[in-house]
Computed example of a mutant assay.
Amino acid sequence: MPELKIAVVGIPGKWSTEVLADALEAQTGFRLVVDMAEVSLDLSLGALMYRGANLCDLDGIVVKKISAEYNPDTLNRLEMLRFAEAKGVRVFSPASSMLGLINRLSCTVTLRQHDIPMPDTVVTEDIDEAMFAVRSFSEAVCKPLFSTKARGMCVIDANQSDEALAAELRAFQALNPVMYLQRKIELPGRDMGMVFLGGEYLGSYARVSQSDSWNTTINSGGRYALAEPPATTIAMAQRAQAAFDLDFTTVDVADTDNGPIVFEVSAFGGFRGALDGAGIDAATLYSKYAIEKIQI
């Protein structure tokens, strides 16, 4: 069988990108790490070019990370990969699936359409409506529509004057014209990343808070640990990820007094948490999965 040419789209030099490229190279003999910031789409020639290579000539592209930070321009990079798909390149996960997850609101709407339990959420451009939401929540987590690992998020307490509350919301809205406000959930010092490959559950890791931060992310000092959720929680997370037709993902879940809730489904999934927390070598498993799918 001829050598399979499967590239990795990611952040060159970053651990998760490189270990995925390592795993694919070990199995195929081919290595190419693609930085989408250097890719050009030539529609007249029907070519998606990166450093002299036409990505449309590849057998597959596995997307580990589309950009270091999310923003509306990130969607354009996925549209470029959608062009490669139309040329016959297998992209993992499908570009259309990832497009539905980069924007937090798009992810939320899909989850709610599938009756996945989530924190109470209000999305608005109106300051008065936002103030009403924060008052009803008592505390609200304000989230940018495009962000990862709690970047750009803040907590606003309703226990202040109307003037002070409006000022905080306007400060958030200055950077986020569409305000995404979510009821702050009291977490038991941890939440979970539940790992799925091809729709099959692999295991779970916990992000455990090591500080008084309101969130458990590693950026805020959290650490990874093994998690063993009950079958009902696994089934709920499985329903959540199934709504998006992803090849690899992690579902962010937290236990609450009212049962488990989903915060979001990841477009790309987390390798470090899977390995350090649950002992799952996601890079090797994902590379084998991609090769098998291309060979079918």
Rank of each mutant, 00 (worst) to 15 (best):
K14L: 11
E139Q: 15
V123I: 14
Q210I: 04
L43R: 13
E163L: 10
M36I: 03
T124W: 01
T121E: 04
D247A: 09
L45V: 06
L175M: 14
P188V: 07
E79P: 10
G199R: 12
A130H: 06
S138Y: 12
R90Y: 07
D212P: 00
G46T: 09
V134Q: 00
S138G: 13
P72V: 07
A130N: 03
G259I: 01
A21N: 07
E168L: 11
G10F: 04
T148N: 03
A166I: 10
I294K: 05
E264C: 08
L45I: 03
Y201F: 15
Y201A: 05
S93K: 05
A227R: 02
M131A: 13
D120F: 08
G222F: 03
D212T: 08
Y224Q: 11
V63N: 00
F196W: 03
A164I: 01
A174H: 11
V262D: 00
D42R: 11
M80I: 02
I294C: 04
R90N: 07
L165M: 08
R170G: 08
E163R: 12
A240I: 02
K293V: 12
Q238F: 06
N54D: 15
V122C: 11
L81Q: 00
A140S: 12
C154N: 03
V178I: 15
L285N: 00
D212R: 08
Y224D: 08
V155I: 14
K5I: 06
G100N: 15
D162K: 10
G193M: 09
P119D: 09
N54F: 06
L175T: 10
F132H: 14
L81A: 02
L81V: 02
N76Y: 08
L24I: 10
V155K: 12
I11R: 11
K149Q: 14
E38S: 00
F244Q: 02
A242P: 02
D128K: 13
S287C: 09
A274K: 00
E129L: 13
L78Q: 01
R104V: 01
T121V: 14
V123R: 01
D35W: 08
D115Y: 13
K149Y: 06
M80A: 11
G270V: 01
F244L: 06
M118Y: 04
V134A: 00
N103D: 14
D252Y: 04
G29I: 07
D245I: 11
Y205F: 13
Y180C: 04
A206R: 05
N219I: 12
H114P: 03
A21L: 08
E200V: 12
V122T: 11
D212A: 12
A206F: 04
P230H: 13
N76V: 08
T124V: 03
Y180I: 09
M236H: 00
T233N: 03
E25T: 04
